[in-house]
Amino acid sequence: MLELRLVQGSLLKKVLEAIKDLVTDANFDCSATGFSLQAMDSSHVALVALLLRSEGFEHYRCDRNISMGMNLNNMSKMLKCAGNDDIITIKGDDGSDTITFMFESPTQDKIADFEMKLMDIDSEHLGIPEAEYHAIVRMPSAEFSRICKDLSSIGDTVVISVTKEGVKFSTRGDIGAANIVLRQNTTVDKPEEATIIEMNEPVSLTFALRYMNSFTKATPLSSMVTISLSSELPVVVEYKIAEMGYVRFYLAPKIEE
């Protein structure tokens, strides 16, 4: 028996919009810790890790650890039928091959049930080691989205370099080249407008912009994004989900042959 009641149902809608273009089918895992997912894109270049902690739900019942295979496009279709202010409850019964999403309007005058078929998915679960990153950049998520979009009109890849000068996003393409440098800026009115750069060592890595642009679909989840870089590791692009957890995207760098 599974029953997860999320008062801020819009969070789940935003999570699906953030990941559904990257991953087609995925297993959602439910345990005492929370509702989580780990999945790679079909070419194994990017990985998404989602956690919605149990404490973030108004009611959280999960009698035993369970893994439920879902087609994210179908799940998104169903969640789009929930209003932005609706309370969403996810319900499942042991051994059932379906899951039910219940949408309640804030005034309780409309209650809808959507039943979705589950699927069997063979997925590999990867161990993500704790790592010391060479540089961690925290910046407004809308600014990061803007930079990725702007650069992708010039080139296909972005070089992200962190030095003591700041963080530089560079690209090059048939029509020319572009460089965008952000310096640390903490003298802003609101904390969510700050750019904070922690650097242990200078680092420079190249990534496919197509994936970065896909990650920025998580922008509505958080005003800030954290980009963690190390020369030996995939970059981590993290959007915190207020009070509940996070969606983290890992992207393997492009490597000189």
């Binding site: 270049v45 990867l126 161990g127 190249t206 590791l233 995939p234 393997a252 492009k254 490597i255």
Partner: peptide, 14 residues
């Protein structure tokens, strides 16, 4: 051009 890396070469299956 640099070659695209693969997640599976960084993170191992558990």
């Amino acid at each position: 051009d640099p070659k695209q890396g693969n997640i599976l070469s960084f993170f191992k299956q558990v």
